[in-house]
Simulated assay, not measured.
Amino acid sequence: MNTSRRATAIAGALVMVGMIAGALSIVPALEEPHYLTLISAHEGQVIAGAFFQSIMIPAYVGFALYLYPTLRKENEALSLGFLGFRLIAATFHLVGVILLPLFLVLGQEFAQAQASASGAAHLGVLGEVLRTGRDLVNHVALIISLGLGDLLLFSVLYRSRLVPRWLSVWGFLGAGLAMSASFLVLFGLTDVVTPLYLAINAPPALHSVVLALWLIARGFETRTLTTSAG
């Protein structure tokens, strides 16, 4: 297996690692109406969520880094932009990781406030602000950063035919759908855990799986790489 083929296979594997880690980073207790009373009893969920979200950082950035040397030969400006947006998304991931332990502190304070019948309402408002902020980071800022980067990625792939054009077109549509779902969350037209939000994000998620498997099994088009190198 040559260097380029190995790089695309690793990039595809990192997509799968990122998706699995993303699914495992969900903290169900935070989606419950009375999450502040539940969070202390579900400390393991919060810690696991932070751990798996932290795994997503090297997975998402590594995907771009492994593809960048090949993409740069096709279009350096677009490839650099793709890598830059991945680094921005990694920063938002890190913010999301940092926010999670704050819920544990808030949950402990809320339990003490309820026991003494003082300040619980204030902490409830603070909790909603924190939960809304986390949703905006994870499902708006992060997704839009990834989406903009993916538009640049699939622009390079479409022009170069490193992967079949139908896969690049699907990537364009998937990025657009993911970002549109984020804007719906931003403007309060839907919540994160709703059938609408999940339905809009289903095609992009399926595309990520197909792209990952393609990169692992097939890699980039060999004849295209040979032509570009010449």
Rank of each mutant, 00 (worst) to 15 (best):
43 E>S: 12
43 E>M: 06
43 E>H: 04
44 G>P: 08
44 G>Y: 09
44 G>C: 06
45 Q>H: 13
46 V>I: 14
46 V>E: 04
47 I>L: 13
47 I>V: 15
47 I>M: 12
48 A>H: 13
49 G>Q: 07
49 G>W: 10
49 G>M: 07
49 G>P: 14
50 A>S: 10
50 A>P: 13
51 F>A: 13
51 F>Q: 00
52 F>E: 04
52 F>N: 02
53 Q>D: 10
54 S>L: 15
54 S>Q: 11
54 S>V: 10
54 S>Y: 13
55 I>Y: 04
55 I>N: 07
56 M>G: 02
56 M>H: 03
56 M>K: 04
56 M>A: 12
56 M>N: 07
58 P>Y: 05
58 P>G: 12
58 P>H: 11
58 P>I: 13
58 P>M: 09
58 P>R: 04
58 P>Q: 09
59 A>G: 10
61 V>M: 07
61 V>W: 11
61 V>T: 13
61 V>A: 14
62 G>L: 07
62 G>H: 06
63 F>A: 00
63 F>T: 05
63 F>H: 08
64 A>F: 01
65 L>V: 14
65 L>S: 08
66 Y>V: 01
66 Y>C: 03
67 L>F: 01
67 L>C: 11
67 L>S: 02
67 L>K: 02
67 L>W: 03
68 Y>I: 05
68 Y>A: 09
68 Y>L: 15
68 Y>P: 00
69 P>F: 12
69 P>V: 06
69 P>L: 02
70 T>N: 05
71 L>I: 06
71 L>K: 07
72 R>C: 04
72 R>T: 08
72 R>I: 04
72 R>V: 05
72 R>M: 05
73 K>N: 14
73 K>G: 06
73 K>H: 12
75 N>C: 12
75 N>A: 14
75 N>Q: 10
76 E>R: 15
76 E>G: 03
